[in-house]
Write a protein that binds this DNA or RNA. Structure first.
Lengths: 199, 199
DNA sequence: AGGCTAAACGGAACAGGCTTCCGATATGCA
DNA sequence: TGCATATCGGAAGCCTGTTCCGTTTAGCCT
């Protein structure tokens, strides 16, 4: 199954094949990182991830120049799935506003189940530039599409910027994990409800 | 309530008077910290603050055991003013919902003008425990009072927790400084609007 | 199969934070 | 004035992330 699927064995598909040990280590690192992220959050020390994978720290930096690249690689599939769910919901749900709400819920569920991801997502640390850009490039257009549809249907105000809303939702998800006194999902629902036009 | 943090030199209070140099340094440190916070944010390196004040780093830790204590001391007056504005607004403004909105605006304005304060306020770093506790102790009851009044007037839903709302508003203010594409005030307005009951 | 080249590796070394420790200093009081 | 001690400043210790360099090993070519 993965024999044909690119696991990043070349650079962009055109370059020479990576060595077998390099490909093996990249796989090992992704698994180790995913495991450590679950227990210690996405800001776990680099040494911990290296130890878990049984490799040296330099090996991490060789495969993933910045921590952001590693995080992106670990969560890429889920982000893609979320992005693809946008148009699908718009097509499947009668009201664009309802589709927007459902999609936002998907995004929120993704964020709150990844320890510290929301926090690092909004961080202005230069090292997370790539992570920031990836999330925005991939999800903001989808959000914009949903917003536009809902606005066109007269269900919400038309002056809502997708980037701004995504950042707001992301911010509301910060610190939501394992704190029963803080329900990010509910607050996000309030925020989305606040977009509605009086009718 | 006030026992957790001591910034007072005991001048007029119980206990022995601090030495003159200690009092002088505490004053100097507060001024230096305030200045550095403005330019570099509340997470500026301790060494920078020490250098600015012309003292050693140990002097900071002697006066303020954690960074949170220093931040509290610097902003105490403004937080107190915000807390006292709550009941005042409730008395002065006809609609409790309007008073709530005005008060939240005060809080948001305070947060977004202090570089990085919102971020550190929500941080789960143990070192900021005191800061967290101070803000919550001082402001959550005020917010609760406003929420209760608005709910009693039938203007907003009654199941909104003050702590949760304050944390949500604080989160929305993260990263709001000097980024024209992110208007925290507007998002907070949406959030508050989302609390309204349909009528 | 065996050797050669360079990619890949691991861990030590470097840099930069926060916090603690200790000898030196300055203060307040007798 | 002289002493006891609170206070001071910077160095040391620790924990991060990141880079460097000698060593190992895969892949190829003979």
């Amino acid at each position: 199954m993965e024999g044909t699927v690119r696991v990043n064995d070349g650079d962009g598909g055109a370059g020479p094949r990576k060595r077998a040990d390099a490909r093996r280590n990249e796989r090992t690192l992704l698994d180790a990182a995913a495991a450590v992220f679950v227990t210690s959050g996405v800001e776990a020390p680099v040494r911990d991830i290296a130890a878990r994978a049984g490799v040296g720290v330099a090996t991490i930096y060789r495969h993933f120049p910045t921590r952001a690249d590693l995080i992106i690689a670990v969560y890429r599939h889920q982000v893609e799935a979320c992005a693809e769910a946008g148009p699908a919901l718009l097509a499947a749900v009668a009201s664009p506003y309802a589709a927007l709400g459902r999609w936002i819920n998907l995004f929120v569920d993704f964020l709150v189940t990844k320890h510290g991801l929301a926090a690092v997502l909004r961080s202005d640390d230069a090292g997370f530039e790539a992570l920031h850009a990836y999330f925005l490039d991939r999800l903001v257009p989808v959000c914009g599409q949903l917003l536009q549809a809902a606005a066109a249907a007269g269900e919400i105000r038309a002056d809502v910027d997708a980037l701004e809303l995504m950042r707001g939702v992301g911010n509301l998800c910060i610190g939501a994990e394992n704190d029963p006194r803080y329900d990010a999902r509910r607050l996000v629902e309030f925020l989305i409800a606040g977009l509605r036009l009086p009718h």
